[in-house]
Structure formats: C-alpha cells, structure tokens
C-alpha cells in the first residue's frame, strides 16, 4: 500500500508537472488563432465521429502525426499522453474480434478472430485514435489563457470560465501541498498497513481540504484589496487574420471532401 501510494503521488506530480511543461514556449509552433483551432477541432471531431469509412480517421491520424513532427513535439511523450485511449483501443479491438460471429479471419490455437468484428473494432479504434491525437495537438499547442479567452468568445458562461481560471491557478499549489503532507505522514508512521493507509490517505484529502479553505480565505482577502468584486476580467480577443481564416476554410473543405469519399 505504501509503495503504491508513493507511486500514485509521484505519478500525479509527474502528470500535473507535464501540463506546465506542455505550455512552455518551446511547444508553441502552431501559430493559429486559438478560436480557429477550437473551431477546426470541433469540425474534425464531428466529422470523425460521423465518418463511415476507415479513410477519414486514417487521414486525420496521418495529418496529426505530420503536425506533431512539424511542431517538433516528442512522439514518445505523445504516446505516453494518449496511453489511456491506446489501451482502450487495444481492448475494443480484442473484444470485438473475439466475441463476434461470422467469417473467420484467422485462427490461433482455440482463439478465433472474426472478420466482421475485427473490422468493426478497427473502425472504432481508428476513430478513438484520430480524436485523441486531434485533441492532443490542440492542447499541446495552445496556452491555457488563450483557450480560456476563446471559450469566453464562444459565449461559454462566465461563471464556468472564472472557475476554470481559479482551478488552473491553484492546481500546482495544491499538488505541492499534497506531496509535503504525504512526506510528513510517512515520517509519522502513516501508510504502515492497508487500513492505516486508507485512513492516512483520507487524512491527506482532509488536510488538503483544510488547506483549501485556509488558502481561500487569504486569497479572497488579497483579491479584495486589489479590487475584486466577484468577477475576474477576461482578455478580449483580437479580430481574425484573413489569411488564417482562409487557410482554415481550405483545410475544412479538403477534409470535408475526404469525409465525403
């Protein structure tokens, strides 16, 4: 139990630290207005979900891989990042291939792989991969503040946006606190048995809750002194560049044609 909690906290620190890394300036090699990126992502996801052939998701996967190399993002990092969808893809392909009926594609010992199920599984798997890569590209190439101001431009409720801003702001701070409390618990013989570990983990969450309230009180105090009246100002978006709009339209027409094929 001790070992797995250690790993869990280390993993979550790694995961959350990676979020920060993704938004370091080196990764931004996709100079397109964030609103256009989100619009393009929306259309790509809708077209991928509604496509009836394997060609469209394959095209999207190819374009995503091309963009990743253009953006000079380490492919290994992306694979680690999309490990969950990759795992799901593997399971779906396996279950669909084995649990179907009909024409047998090939047989290995007593396991039969059915053609119909395999093709159906492949279709879903490619859709999952295409969507995961598309979302990854947008999130890896767009700073969080740009996503927020774009969402505001798309008229996402202001309250929701404000909560996103606060969440992003305090995410890293709370994770650091979690690690400090965890180390302190271990030194005081926490996590020594299974029952003790569940209790220690509960106390960790409780201690974070207390920290949350304490931070909240001091943060609001500080914000009030700076004129906070319950609303966070959000950056206004500039007008679109013609070349970017035309480029995006051409891209949409091309992928629309591929979808139609």
């Amino acid at each position: 139990m001790d070992l797995w909690l250690d790993t869990s906290l280390e993993n979550s620190r790694k995961v959350v630290t990676e979020i920060n890394e993704f938004f370091n300036a080196n990764n931004f090699r996709f100079p397109l207005d964030a609103r256009l990126k989100l619009l393009l992502l929306f259309f790509v996801l809708v077209l991928t979900l509604s496509s009836k052939s394997l060609i469209f998701p394959l095209t999207i996967i190819f374009l995503c891989l091309l963009s990743l190399s253009f953006m000079k993002i380490n492919l290994k990092k992306v694979i680690v990042r999309i490990s969950e969808p990759l795992f799901i893809v593997f399971v779906i392909l396996l279950i669909k291939s084995i649990f179907s009926q009909g024409e047998i594609l090939f047989e290995f010992l007593i396991i039969k792989i059915y053609k119909g199920g395999f093709l159906e599984g492949l279709e879903i798997s490619l859709r999952v991969l295409a969507c995961a890569l598309s979302v990854s590209i947008i999130s890896l190439s767009t700073p969080f503040n740009e996503i927020i101001s774009s969402l505001s431009w798309f008229k996402v409720p202001k309250t929701l946006i404000e909560i996103m801003i606060f969440t992003y702001r305090y995410l890293f701070m709370l994770l650091d606190e979690a690690l400090v409390i965890y180390c302190s618990q271990k030194q005081k013989l926490g996590y020594s048995s299974f029952k003790n570990s569940v209790r220690s983990f509960g106390y960790l969450v409780g201690a974070l809750l207390i920290k949350t309230f304490e931070h909240c009180e001091s943060i609001v105090q500080a914000m009030k002194q700076r004129g906070y009246e319950g609303y966070v100002p959000i950056r206004k978006e500039k007008s679109f560049k013609k070349i970017e709009v035309i480029g995006s339209l051409i891209f949409l027409i091309i992928i629309g044609m591929v979808w139609w094929l």
């Binding site: 869990s8 906290l9 993993n11 404000e162 606060f166 969440t167 702001r169 709370l174 949350t212």
Partner: peptide, 29 residues
C-alpha cells in the same frame, strides 16, 4: 457568490482538489 465573495475561488480550489484526487492512479489489490 452574490452574498459570499469567497465562493468562486473556493469552488476553483475544490475543483483542483477533485482533479488531483481523480488523477491519482491507485493500484487495486
């Protein structure tokens, strides 16, 4: 949040906490 200014920052902080709890992969016995 009309009556309590701390409410929105509190929800933001609690969301960050839920995010952290839900990204902690726990090996299941």
């Amino acid at each position: 949040s009309e009556s309590e200014l701390f409410f929105k920052p509190l929800i933001g902080l609690l969301t960050a906490l839920v995010f952290i709890i839900s990204v902690m992969p726990i090996p299941v016995p």
